[in-house]
Computed example of a mutant assay.
Amino acid sequence: MSTSLPDRQYVGEDWYVQPPTGGLQLRVSDCNHCGKRWFPPRFACSSCASHDLTQNRTGNTGIAYASSHVHVGSGAWPKSYVLSYIDIDRVRVLMHTDSDRSLDPDTPVRLVLGRIGTADDVELWSYRAQPDLITQESQR
């Protein structure tokens, strides 16, 4: 019996990297003029309009700033899902979250690659936040 994998499309794949050491990192732009950091990466600073930017990567862990449980998804999104603002290496990013409830502020998370929706029988995959249960246990 053969098992076929569903079709998969990666969303925003220019915005993240899976290093050989594992994990997931986001691509960010650092402005060398005003010091602001931006995600997704860009070619001009959204604060001072400088083109003097350095392209960098974040680490693969962050902290939940705020989170919301969406109970009525539409279109390609699941019927119920959690979105969280994650602070990661001086940038705040909105992302889908591997949880069935909103995260408490300051919850440690790891970046992972996972399904964020489905459109026309094609799974949509991108970066996600996954609560870091090991770190949470060690902080108790």
Rank of each mutant, 00 (worst) to 15 (best):
C31Y: 02
G75P: 06
Q9Y: 11
Q9N: 11
P78H: 05
L113D: 01
R110D: 14
W15V: 00
I63N: 07
P40G: 08
W125S: 00
Y127D: 01
V72E: 07
G73I: 06
S74Y: 11
L124A: 03
K79I: 00
P6T: 10
V82N: 09
S99N: 03
T21Y: 01
L113W: 04
V82A: 05
Y81W: 09
R128G: 06
T97H: 06
V112Q: 02
N60A: 02
M1L: 10
V109I: 14
G12V: 01
V112P: 00
P6E: 12
P41C: 03
T135Y: 01
F43A: 06
D30G: 05
M95R: 02
V28I: 15
R27S: 05
N60C: 08
G12T: 01
V112A: 13
Y10G: 00
L111V: 09
V91A: 11
C45S: 05
A129S: 10
G62L: 03
V11W: 10
V122K: 13
A66T: 13
Q25P: 01
P6G: 12
D30C: 09
D104C: 01
P41G: 10
S47M: 09
P41H: 15
L26N: 07
W125V: 13
V112L: 00
A119T: 02
L94V: 11
W38R: 02
R92Q: 12
G73K: 06
L26F: 03
F43H: 07
C45A: 06
T118D: 08
D106Y: 07
Q55I: 14
D89Q: 07
G117C: 08
G75I: 03
D52E: 15
G62Q: 02
L111S: 09
A44R: 12
Y81L: 05
W125D: 00
P19I: 13
I88D: 04
V93F: 04
D52K: 08
S99W: 09
C31F: 03
S2L: 14
Y127V: 08
T3W: 10
I63T: 15
G59E: 03
V93I: 12
Y65K: 07
L94K: 03
R140I: 07
G114L: 05
L83M: 14
P131G: 07
R8V: 15
V70M: 11
D100R: 06
V91R: 07
S46Q: 13
K36W: 10
D7A: 15
D87I: 00
R37L: 06
Q130I: 00
P6C: 13
G35N: 08
S80L: 00
L24S: 11
D89K: 04
Y16S: 04
Y16G: 01
E137I: 09
K79P: 12
V82S: 05
L113F: 07
P105Q: 08
R8P: 00
K36L: 11
G23N: 10
H69Y: 05
R37A: 11
R27F: 02
T54K: 12
S126C: 01
V70E: 08
S2A: 15
K36T: 13
P20C: 04
D89I: 09
H96L: 00
L124S: 01
R8Y: 01
N60R: 04
S67N: 05
H51I: 07
Y65A: 06
T21C: 02
V91F: 07
V72L: 13
H69I: 04
R42D: 05
S126I: 01
T61H: 11
